[in-house]
Amino acid sequence: MTATAEELAEGTRLRARKRRQRLMVDAGLLVFCVLMLMPLVFLIGNAFKTPQELLAWPPTIIPQDPTLENFRIALAETSLLRWLGNSIAFALSSTAAIVATSAITGYVMAKFPFRSINVLFFLFLATAVVPFEVYMIPLYFQVRALGLLDSIGGLLIGYLVMSFGIFLIRQNTIHSIPDELIEAARVDGAGELWIFWHIALPLLRGAMGALAVLAFFQAWTAFAWPIVVTSREQHYTVEVGLALFQTGYTVDTGLVSAASTIVLIPSVLVFVLLRRNFVQGVASTGMKE
């Protein structure tokens, strides 16, 4: 059966309509994405502005007369680099602690079906409901009793374990490590620790990567805990340093923006490079069902 000329014309019209719709969706999304990125563009723009231009009305978006002076002051005359160092040390050690505890615990929870282990698992999960801010104050006194206020160790105590990490590794172990594999290794006389280290861990690499990225960002953006635990300027994390920076009487927008830009660029870069890991990690938080 051949199509009539009318039907063909109808088909072309439909296709043209579809294409028009797609163009409209793309245009709408592009505008929206630009709007979403706008605040960050403003911030980076301000970092390059001279004091005069910062007072200009109407405000400019792209600096007319870009200067690096704000960056020079931020790096040379503030403790920004120190705070960055503190944040990196804190975030890396928290990541290591969370990945290590989650990997071994999640693996055991998945592959050792003892009742006592299951009870523990629900205990771990149940405390995940309690927001950190709720038990932060008693925890502060524990850290103080240990003499760890104003130190990376003190910061770390709040971020040693993550319930969700244990959950994530457990789910991944169940899905990606067959029982037969472990049984076969046992029959061959492998010890439990050897099996965990040489068989389970390599198979969990993807999940551990996603968890590591999540843990790093969680510590990197922590705010309430660092502000409570640190009180001396040289021990601040970058978030606390920046926040207290701007609560003076006068705010030097150029300087604050330059400092913020220095903080933002590595995290956005890391995110763009590790986007897959990150999205996988965040998305898996929503796939409980």
């Binding site: 979403m36 990125l37 605040p39 960050l40 705010f223 970058v238 978030e239 926040a243 913020s260 933002l264």
Partner: peptide, 17 residues
Amino acid sequence: TAIFVPHVVSLVPAALA
């Protein structure tokens, strides 16, 4: 990426913007 970036940037720089 564009929609997710605001979620990953540090809170304080974003608030300053």
